[in-house]
Design a protein around this nucleic acid. Structure first.
Lengths: 223, 223
DNA sequence: CTTAATCTGTAACATTTGTTACATTTACAT
DNA sequence: ATGTAAATGTAACAAATGTTACAGATTAAG
């Protein structure tokens, strides 16, 4: 069990001995979950630190009309709801669903707090994690602030290009998924993609996008 | 200078003596700013802790079409860009404008890090601050995920009622401001308000809202 | 009190996106 | 190879919001 945690952002920098020692001092438990299980609802209290050790979780926000907006997917060994354990509002912001079978490590808040004081490296790691969450959410807001679907598509592609480098982008998402991620309906996304293809901005096939006119793509975002 | 900081979320719980001692160990500087001044642009590196001591700042995100979306206003003694000092992406997420004259306290990151290890109470405070930021942003996303203007209005009013308590809500914002906050245009907001008034959901005058039908208001959000 | 600036109401029209429904294509398991 | 489920293309129409422009109301400054 511990080797997985050594690679986690929270325990990064610790040796196996140090980690083992730490866990001998701090109470904790393991819980298994099944694919499809609802692990937490928006509004549930957050009173424990949760580390995903195996499996895949998905956090999704459900708006009041019942539509859902996928927010993020979690893979091990990440923390769950890290930014909601402290601060003024200790409630789950999203619905947490299991996409596969897996298991989580649970440490009650009090114990977790003790652990932070016991190991300052873990505390620094934790600050980095929470900061990273805030930064992720900030980026999400940038994205959601884009007004038109064209802008969202352009932004999405340009983000991918930046990390990739070329005029070629591999997609591992279906349009159905992307529509959810963008917070728009699937036919609308499809239609807009067709329009942009007709304008010779890019070609979009199942598994990749080839940019044909980078200038046009940039100009959609006014740059 | 120090008395102001005693009330700040970052130094909460310290005595004046402790704070004075801390500042004798940690290098810092004061900078004055003028109303209207642009203190930071989105993308600027964040390599120092900044505490607002006097005056009012506003963080606004500028989308690529040049429209702006007001994100938050800062009053003393709050930290600026607290969630961007650590974590993977140390860049300002917003444009930071001075709404009034004022001054800020600056501590370079290295010194700030030292301070966190020197004073664990400050470290805990800082975790609370960053967590609070993440939670604020999360709420912002909830809001931006609302699809229609009606939903945004309903959500906004119900939030205000919750903190107030009655069927009466005081507004200190102009519709022009609110439209910006909602990320919609001003005439569209106005139109939608009129429609909701015609449906006898509330009456909206310059400085207050009186709810006439709480059920309808809730049903807009599907609850 | 007067004037200028800001805020608000309103309307016609354009644009974007959602809704619904169905056809077509692709992927996958048997 | 075949059948089934998932993903995608497409179209007609409805709904929501943006755009632009102007008039009236309110507020702030002098």
């Amino acid at each position: 069990m511990y080797p997985i945690l050594l690679n986690s952002p929270l325990f990064r920098g610790l040796t196996l001995e140090e980690l083992t020692h730490l866990f001998s001092l701090v109470k904790h438990q393991i819980r298994h979950f099944r694919s499809g299980e609802l692990l937490a609802q928006a509004g549930d209290p957050v009173d424990k630190a949760i580390l995903l050790m195996e499996g895949r979780l998905q956090g999704e926000m459900v708006d009041f009309a019942g539509n859902s907006l996928k927010i993020e997917e979690l893979d091990p060994p990440q923390m769950v709801a890290a930014a909601f354990l402290y601060g003024p509002k200790n409630k789950f912001p999203v619905f947490l669903n299991a996409k596969t079978d897996g298991k989580i490590l649970i440490i009650l808040k009090k114990e977790f707090t003790d652990m932070l004081s016991l190991e300052s490296r873990v505390m620094v790691n934790y600050i980095n994690i929470v900061s990273g969450k805030a930064q992720f959410l900030s980026g999400k807001i940038t994205f959601l602030s884009l007004r038109t679907i064209k802008e969202k598509i352009a932004y999405y592609i340009l983000q991918m290009v930046k990390s990739g480098g070329n005029n070629y982008v591999a997609i591992d998402q279906t349009q159905t998924n992307l529509a959810e991620l963008f917070g728009v309906t699937r036919p609308s996304l499809s239609r807009t993609i067709q329009e942009m293809e007709k304008q010779d901005i890019f070609t979009w096939s199942r598994d990749n996008i080839v940019i044909k006119d980078l200038k046009k793509l940039n100009s959609i975002l006014g740059r």
